[in-house]
């Protein structure tokens, strides 16, 4: 059951009571989010059915293609900033030709997946949370359950699959755009030829960088969707609750992206 009955808890009398309650609630919310993830994964067995397939493609279009504009701009300027900063530092040693390596490795390992995760958390995660939150407060979710339509299969699974597919792809797209942006700065500002830049960029980057970066983006996609859907389903208190759920979804997604990003780097590179 996704729909929640209204709950009432008497106010705590002291600080320890409030603290204990918030700890217990946060554990409960984490548990619910994990249960939601498991239910969505189980519902993936229906993903190749006609209705689900169509919904997944629609969500991929909304999450991926419609985010391309903002991702392109962010990626190009991220690459340009990286190239300019490292290029100016390396110029002191006449090593500005090595900006290709710096930009490529940074984008593949960290900046590509990380920036994509942040953009999708802000654009897509907030939209998912707001949409599901609105459906919850207008009792559309309850109506679906009454009609024996599983909200997880109908709402969560297509979004999760779409995000799991599109986030690594957008991260790769962001890496390519970032490298192109770095090359533009290298050619126009630092006097590094395009050929030397690309040669340097591909010489030191490894397949492992690409694979780990895409794996990170895959995890970020899952995190954003599950957090947004969970916050949406947990919405209470009408329109105010929708805004609260949206804000919380974005904040939690940001924090989890940072923490999970660190641990993935720690696991694969240390």
């Amino acid at each position: 059951m996704i729909s929640r009955e209204p709950e009432f808890f008497p106010p705590s009398r002291n600080m320890f009571g409030r603290l204990g309650r918030s700890v217990v609630f946060s554990f409960r919310e984490t548990g619910r989010a994990v249960v939601l993830l498991v239910m969505a994964i189980l519902a993936m067995r229906h993903m190749f059915k006609k209705r689900s397939r169509t919904e997944i493609v629609v969500q991929m279009f909304v999450f991926g293609i419609k985010s391309l504009g903002v991702i392109t701009v962010v990626a190009i300027f991220t690459g340009m900033i990286l190239a300019l900063q490292t290029g100016l530092a390396l110029r002191q040693f006449n090593q500005e030709v090595n900006i290709g390596t710096a930009v490529m490795v940074s984008m593949l390992r960290e900046m590509g997946p990380f920036m994509t995760g942040l953009i999708l958390a802000a654009c897509v995660g907030s939209a998912i949370a707001a949409q599901i939150g609105t459906m919850v407060v207008s009792e559309e979710i309850a109506a679906l359950e009454i009609m024996s339509i599983d909200p997880v299969r109908y709402l969560v699974m297509p979004r999760l699959v779409a995000m799991l597919i599109m986030t690594p792809m957008l991260a790769f797209y962001m890496c390519i755009m970032g490298v192109i942006g770095g090359g533009l700065v290298g050619q126009t500002q630092l006097g590094v030829s395009w050929d030397a830049y690309i040669d340097n960029a591909t010489r030191f980057a490894e397949v492992k960088d690409l694979v780990v970066g895409m794996f990170k983006a895959f995890l970020f996609g899952g995190i954003i969707t599950v957090v947004a859907c969970h916050q949406g389903f947990a919405t209470t208190q009408g329109a105010v609750g929708v805004g609260f759920a949206t804000r919380k979804a974005v904040i939690v997604s940001f924090l989890l992206i940072l923490v999970v990003g660190y641990f993935v780097t720690r696991i694969f590179y240390v």
């Binding site: 790769f172 390519i176 591909t202 980057a205 490894e206 397949v207 960088d209 690409l210």
Partner: peptide, 10 residues
Amino acid sequence: GLGYFTIILS
């Protein structure tokens, strides 16, 4: 792109 990149980086 991923395939091309994988070949180049490997």
